[in-house]
């Protein structure tokens, strides 16, 4: 019971906070709606746990909680993949930046004759 209650409170806080960020134009409307919907669903699942069981049965998983764990793992894997791609891209951009800086200021050798040697 405490667990359920905690989740609902947490979900409400997250939604409120996201709304606040939306007001400050820190996140897009799309993000606000998607994120709020997610937390509403989480809240519903916490209050009426058998809804997740029903959905789980529908898609062929035995328990709702199991299904949530499977979904969470997939979402996290995808998030890691996206981050990985982004970091890789950033590495390439840093290299390009470093390259342009290097190309902009080459040290040109003095020819031996010109140095008077």
């Amino acid at each position: 019971m405490i667990f359920q209650f905690g989740i609902v409170i947490f979900a409400l806080l997250v939604i409120l906070r996201t709304y606040g960020q939306y007001k400050k134009e820190l996140v897009s409307r799309y993000w606000l709606l998607a994120f709020s919907l997610l937390w509403v669903l989480i809240g519903v699942a916490a209050i009426i746990p058998h809804t997740t069981d029903d959905i789980a049965h529908f898609v062929g998983v035995e328990r709702g909680a199991d299904m949530l764990v499977y979904i969470a793992v997939l979402v996290l894997l995808y998030a890691v993949y996206r981050l990985f791609v982004r970091v890789q891209k950033m590495h390439e951009e840093i290299t390009e930046l470093v390259r342009q800086i290097a190309l902009a200021s080459p040290k040109v050798p003095v020819k031996k004759g010109e140095r008077g040697e």
């Binding site: 840093i94 290299t95 470093v98 390259r99 800086i101 290097a102 190309l103 200021s105 080459p106 040290k107 040109v108 050798p109 031996k112």
Partner: peptide
Amino acid sequence: GAYVLRHVINRGQGAALET
């Protein structure tokens, strides 16, 4: 007697070759 270019951050041999 070489032309010398400097990478301000270490980027590895492949990157240096390309530069």
